[in-house]
Design a protein around this nucleic acid. Structure first.
Length: 266
DNA sequence: ATGGCAGTATTTTACTGA
């Protein structure tokens, strides 16, 4: 840890870890996060750049998939009890969830890294898959909350929670990220007792984590907030603050998402 | 509003993403 009194937990959809390795290493060196949940690594476990990331000081756990999806955990502390895949559907072959317990000097923190389905187009089976995944995530989070331990569910949720989370909310009406059923599933998740870490400390709009590559979205700040960290009560009690590393979006050949970092007292 | 961008696969475009 950079500071003995706190722990930084981050989530970042890197849009291919192989294409983004230089930026990932640059950001790890700059931000010095203690734990990182990566999404859309887009490679099999054996193709993950484990050695380069271990050289940067991190332990690695990967749940990979070729071409699409894929999630990973990077940690400065030992990763224990790693589980891969979201329970509730044995036929689901998409690599979208990885969980582990991180042992820190201040105690254990359980972390779930999630890449929730996009769900578009909404008249296709993809939207049903998204809603089914959200219900499975709710059921799994409910189980984890019974443990009454610090638990952080972090990742790309592909959910714009409210109008203030989009620069142009009117453009998202009817989209899988913003449909009423999506919002209802999001609220059911939070109603378990999870805290949206960013909203615990910032009520303002204009706080985004994703800007499309197209149509000059970054230059126009036409963004949305879809990358989130949800905290169990025991984790929320330790929340010191959240930041979004927006500047990473202006680096050369960036991901369309930027890192979101929560600081917890440990 | 769309898909103008970007990544991957096997490629000479198709698909996926949000």
């Amino acid at each position: 840890m950079g500071d003995a009194a706190q722990m930084q937990i981050a989530t970042w959809n890197v849009n291919s870890v192989k294409s983004r390795l230089d930026l990932l290493l640059r950001w790890l060196d700059e931000a010095r996060p203690d734990l990182v949940c990566l999404q859309e690594i887009k490679c099999l476990d054996e193709a993950f750049p484990t050695a380069a990331i271990e050289d940067a000081g991190y332990s690695v756990a990967v749940h990979g998939q070729k071409t699409y999806n894929g999630v990973a955990l990077l940690s400065r502390f030992p990763l224990e009890d790693v589980t891969r895949g979201l329970p509730g559907d044995e036929s689901d072959e998409q690599a979208r969830y990885i969980e582990a317990v991180v042992s820190t000097p201040g105690g254990a923190v359980r972390v779930g890294g999630v890449y929730l389905p996009n769900g578009n187009p909404v008249d296709s089976p993809k939207y049903g898959y998204k809603l089914g995944f959200m219900e499975r995530l709710r059921a799994h989070a409910a189980e984890r909350l019974l443990l009454e331990e610090p638990f952080v569910l972090a990742g790309d949720f592909n959910v714009i929670p409210e109008a203030r989370d989009a620069r142009r909310p009117e453009a998202w009406v009817g989209d899988a990220l913003y449909l009423p059923d999506t919002h209802a599933a999001w609220r059911r998740l939070l109603a378990l007792g999870l805290t949206d870490a960013l909203r615990a400390s910032d009520d303002e709009g204009g706080v985004y984590t994703f800007w499309d590559y197209q149509a000059g979205a970054w230059q126009k700040d036409n963004g949305i907030r879809i990358d989130h960290l949800l905290l169990s009560p025991q984790a929320a009690d330790r929340l010191l603050g959240v930041r979004i590393d927006r500047h990473v979006r202006s680096w050369e050949r960036p991901s369309d998402h930027v890192p979101v970092v929560a600081e917890l007292a440990v």
